[in-house]
Structure formats: structure tokens, C-alpha cells
Simulated assay, not measured.
Amino acid sequence: MNICKRKTLIALVGFACAPLAAAASGEDILTVTLPDRVVGMTITQLEALPVTEFDTTTIWTEGAQHFRGVRMVDLLDHFGVTQGQVQLTAANDYSISVPVDDFTDDGAILAYQRNGKHMTLRTKGPLWLVYPYDSSPEYQSEVIYSNSIWQLDRITMID
């Protein structure tokens, strides 16, 4: 392998593993921007919030997947957010806006584990907004699929 290919391979491996390294080192994996402050959250802080887990199939993976994370309603409640919209942004700057009222107790979770493992950028992490797609036809729509943002690393509260 020539030196250029070797450096590229090392760079790609480092990029894919960065969220895992951040999780292990206690670095922030999520930045939450509120009207009055910006809060960085580590995986440990996210895992300290109420945990929700479910099994579901997705249109992006093979077979049933087990997701573990925090319900969006619990995360929003943690920050005292009760109205408005949230903008969710991925590492590649893909962004969506969702009304706070669209998040329900039986709906989306901010998953930090899939099949018992923390996710890397390569495996759609560090965070993935997932819904229990198999639980109801309402979670099998184009809107829900487009809201299912992976490689999520930023949430901004907007009015």
C-alpha cells in the first residue's frame, strides 16, 4: 500500500471512530443550544437521563434493531422546553426542524446505542433520532423517515 492510501485509510478510520473515542474520553457528543445558553452533553450525561429502548425494523438496516436512548420528550423536559420547534443537525450539516408538540411519550428517542453498542459515524451515530416504526402506521410516513436523522450532534431550540 502506498503512503497516500495508508494516510487516507488512517484518516477514514479515525473519522469513523471519533464519536466512540469521544464517548470513552468524556467529550461532548451533543451540543444543545437554548435561548439563554449552550450546553454540551457527554454520553454519560445522556445515559443518566431516563432510558427508553425498543426493537424495530428500519428502512436503512437489515432485520430488527434494538435501540436504546432517551425519549425526545424527556430530553426536552430536561431543558424545560415545552413549545416552539427544535432544529436537529447532523455532522454533515443535514438539518430538520420539528415542532416540539410532535414529540410524544411513545414516539422518537435520541438513540445512543444500537444492538447494544454505542454508534460511530460509520454506524449512523453518535446519535440517531429513531421512531418505533413497527408500532404504528403513523411512524411509517415520508415525514417520519425524513425526520429520522442520524449522525446527530446538534440540537437548537427555535421559536
Rank of each mutant, 00 (worst) to 15 (best):
G69V: 10
V70D: 08
M72G: 05
M72Q: 09
M72A: 09
M72W: 10
V73Y: 05
V73A: 09
V73G: 07
V73T: 15
D74F: 13
D74P: 12
D74K: 12
L76H: 02
L76V: 10
L76K: 09
L76G: 11
D77Y: 03
H78W: 12
H78E: 14
F79C: 07
F79E: 08
G80E: 08
G80R: 06
V81E: 07
T82E: 14
Q83D: 13
G84Q: 08
Q85C: 00
V86G: 03
V86A: 07
Q87W: 04
L88M: 14
L88T: 05
A90E: 11
A91T: 11
N92T: 13
D93V: 10
D93T: 14
D93E: 14
Y94E: 02
I96G: 06
I96L: 03
S97M: 11
S97H: 08
V98P: 00
P99T: 00
P99I: 05
P99W: 01
P99Y: 00
D102Y: 08
D102V: 05
F103S: 06
F103T: 10
F103Y: 13
F103D: 05
T104W: 13
T104Q: 14
T104Y: 08
D105E: 15
D106C: 10
G107N: 00
G107P: 08
A108E: 11
L110E: 06
L110K: 09
L110Q: 07
A111H: 04
Y112Q: 13
Q113H: 12
Q113E: 15
Q113N: 06
R114P: 06
N115W: 08
N115L: 12
N115T: 11
N115H: 12
G116D: 13
K117L: 15
K117R: 15
H118P: 03
M119P: 07
M119Y: 04
M119Q: 11
T120W: 14
T120M: 15
L121I: 09
L121V: 06
R122E: 15
R122F: 15
T123G: 03
T123W: 00
G125N: 04
G125R: 03
G125S: 09
P126T: 03
P126Y: 01
P126H: 01
W128G: 02
W128V: 00
L129Q: 03
L129T: 02
V130C: 02
P132D: 01
P132R: 00
P132L: 04
P132C: 01
Y133E: 01
D134H: 01
D134I: 01
S136G: 08
S136E: 06
P137C: 01
P137R: 00
E138I: 10
E138K: 13
E138C: 09
Y139P: 02
E142N: 14
E142A: 15
V143S: 14
I144S: 06
I144T: 10
